[in-house]
Design a protein around this nucleic acid. Sequence first.
DNA 1: TGTCAAATGTCAGAGGCTGACACTAGCCTC
DNA 2: GAGGCTAGTGTCAGCCTCTGACATTTGACA
Lengths: 208, 208
Amino acid sequence: METLRERKKQRTRDALLRSALELFVAQGYEHTTVDEIAESVDVSQRTFFRYFAGKEEAAFFLPRLTEAYYVEALRRRPPEEAPLEALRAAVLDSFDSIEQAIERYVPLELHMRAYKVIEATPVLHAAHLGRQSETEEEITRIVAEREGVDPDTDPRPRLLVALFGAVIRVTERHWSVGDDFGVAAIRDLTVAYLDQVGPALLGNWRES
Amino acid sequence: METLRERKKQRTRDALLRSALELFVAQGYEHTTVDEIAESVDVSQRTFFRYFAGKEEAAFFLPRLTEAYYVEALRRRPPEEAPLEALRAAVLDSFDSIEQAIERYVPLELHMRAYKVIEATPVLHAAHLGRQSETEEEITRIVAEREGVDPDTDPRPRLLVALFGAVIRVTERHWSVGDDFGVAAIRDLTVAYLDQVGPALLGNWRES
DNA sequence: TGTCAAATGTCAGAGGCTGACACTAGCCTC
DNA sequence: GAGGCTAGTGTCAGCCTCTGACATTTGACA
């Protein structure tokens, strides 16, 4: 962000993002119109659409960021690690670095509240799943490369990533209905759920 | 469907459904307008929206049906079965009964092609994932009840169902990019992927 | 300072979807 | 079988998301 022009752009986008999230949190995603968001930042509706491809994109700007951090964390894991272990460690790693990244845009709590709006709004939740599904495709390629297998032939990378993603989503969902807005809460839940994968798949629950 | 009135309604809805799927398959979901669908059946746009809550709902009418069949098949599994085994057997069971159910509405091949459109259209795929996520909630309750555990306390039912759903989705995705439109192909793929869950979760792939 | 390009605004319009109201056509009773 | 009732349909007006086209403003930079 060198020139004045670029700084202005940045400020406009940040303001739009922040206003959008605040409005979503305050009055719900569906009850917030793009006109409202634009007006609250004093730009035209058209300008909003030049910064965000759609209303959804405003809601997903920060989730996108955190996913990028996760992918980055995964790329950094040592190649000797077993695949599942690398996926798990990357999640825990990324939790740390993400907080500051978020704060560059909005207060962490606003982000957390917005995240709960995503989980609670069916159309947003669906879009969220769709995006995650795309991310999983990227992660699949990373895992396959780590292990030196072909993801189009060997089903294991895609399957492992899908299974892992399922655990993450159950965790997010569980977190989203709770009252704890902190990152530590998600972290603990993630570990707890990952540890339950074995028992869940076990044949007989009634003997335990 | 006793009265003439009811028969007419049924015919209108069936015609709308069929026209919609045909248009989606022929020219793509996004390039098909509701006006087009309505016009091809010679009713007003408003009438379309009285039969389907939205354009999406037309695309998901049959997937909804097949999911209902799956849930029903699961309910019928003997209670002694281990949970994962019941989920697996229910999928295979339901494949049989679904074909005829579909044919009551449209030719099976049209349905299969429409299904590929869902998988290939991002906005539909996302909505599909959202709906599946809701179905998983229902399945979770069924599994929890079978096993006599509380799904709000014990993480295993929800986790198992999420993991199982992940395998199903990978299977669907794989099938959707292939050229085989038959049901047998999905069935075989399902079995193959389910058998890979263990190996995928296994620590080290390089030793095998 | 004047030129160029980037950013924004304005306008028109497509497409999804909804509420309100009028009208048409099966249904049911007498 | 005529007439009242009501479910189903059409019409219309309007909101909201999103896009293309064109005009206008405002930094950047020689």
